[in-house]
């Protein structure tokens, strides 16, 4: 199949960007979206043009590195699918595709389609963990966890940290990412001692970097792991409770 790509090219963080048009010809419908870009890049190198930089690593939809806005949709048209798992059979011969980086001030552009998502690490560092030093844990079966709770925690923990939720959000909010971690830990008995401190600490750092949530729901629709916005409600409830409990002294 043949496609026309309009791709955001930007030489560096402070350089002005622009759209460039490339023809992607003779693409196999069985190839993945990123393999299509590999091929376009091979041809660019042949012509002596610098290849398009894009984010990718495991190409199995689990590392969360990849992420491209394809025709305005984070990770493209297929639901619950990261860019790397998208295949060309999802497109038609002759399609024109506009490729942009995650567009949000929380993720500054490094080059072309590559952005800096380190703000996510800052949110986790603020409290997205259970404080347990190596070697100090009791036997794993000492505390039973009801299967439903464990399953729900796992649903939240499935987040891959790709940032599609932020990219899709009109406000550039990171509520879904933050709520997934808050809920994962808050649903388990092991996460209880720090539950209310954790939510406040994480939300504060989140707000330093990202916009505010207005319950648009775009995040859930874009999420490659189908993380539910119910977790945002859980996080908000915990946050309110934490404020009332005045658990925090800061």
């Amino acid at each position: 199949m043949n496609l026309t790509l309009r791709v955001w090219r930007q030489a560096g963080p402070d350089a002005p960007g622009r759209f460039e048009t490339y023809e992607a010809t003779d693409i196999s419908a069985d190839s993945s979206f990123l393999e299509m870009l590999d091929l376009v890049n091979e041809r660019l190198i042949e012509q002596g043009e610098e290849p398009i930089e894009f984010m990718h690593d495991c190409r199995e939809g689990i590392c969360g590195t990849c992420g491209i806005m394809i025709n305005g949709q984070a990770h493209g048209p297929q639901s619950s699918t990261a860019t790397c798992q998208l295949h060309m059979r999802s497109f038609q011969d002759g399609d024109e595709l506009v490729l942009e980086p995650w567009r949000t001030s929380g993720f500054p552009i490094i080059k072309d389609l590559v952005v800096d998502r380190s703000a996510f690490d800052r949110i986790i560092e603020a409290g997205g963990y259970i404080s347990v030093d190596t070697g100090s844990a009791p036997d794993a079966n000492l505390i039973p966890v009801p299967k439903d709770d464990a399953d729900l925690a796992m649903d939240a923990a499935a987040c891959i940290g790709c940032g599609a939720c932020v990219a899709a959000c009109p406000n550039g909010a990171a509520q879904l990412f933050t709520a997934a971690k808050v809920s994962h830990l808050g649903l388990l008995p092991q996460g209880q001692p720090e539950r209310y401190e954790r939510v406040v600490d994480m939300v504060e750092v989140m707000e330093e970097h990202f916009g505010s949530c207005t319950n648009m729901g775009e995040c859930e629709a874009a999420c490659p792991k189908g993380i539910s916005i119910d977790f945002i409600a859980m996080m908000n409830r915990d946050y309110l409770k934490a404020k009332f409990r005045n658990r925090r002294t800061a």
């Binding site: 963990y129 259970i130 347990v132 190596t134 070697g135 100090s136 844990a137 009791p138 036997d139 794993a140 079966n141 505390i143 039973p144 966890v145 009801p146 299967k147 464990a150 399953d151 925690a153 796992m154 923990a157 994962h184 830990l185 388990l188 092991q190 996460g191």
Partner: peptide, 22 residues
């Protein structure tokens, strides 16, 4: 065995049986 204890304490959501055990 220590690894499993450590990871459970960290909140790794391992699969569980209906009785709540691993």
């Amino acid at each position: 065995n220590n690894i499993i204890d450590q990871c459970v304490a960290q909140g790794v959501p391992f699969a569980r049986e209906y009785g709540g055990l691993l």
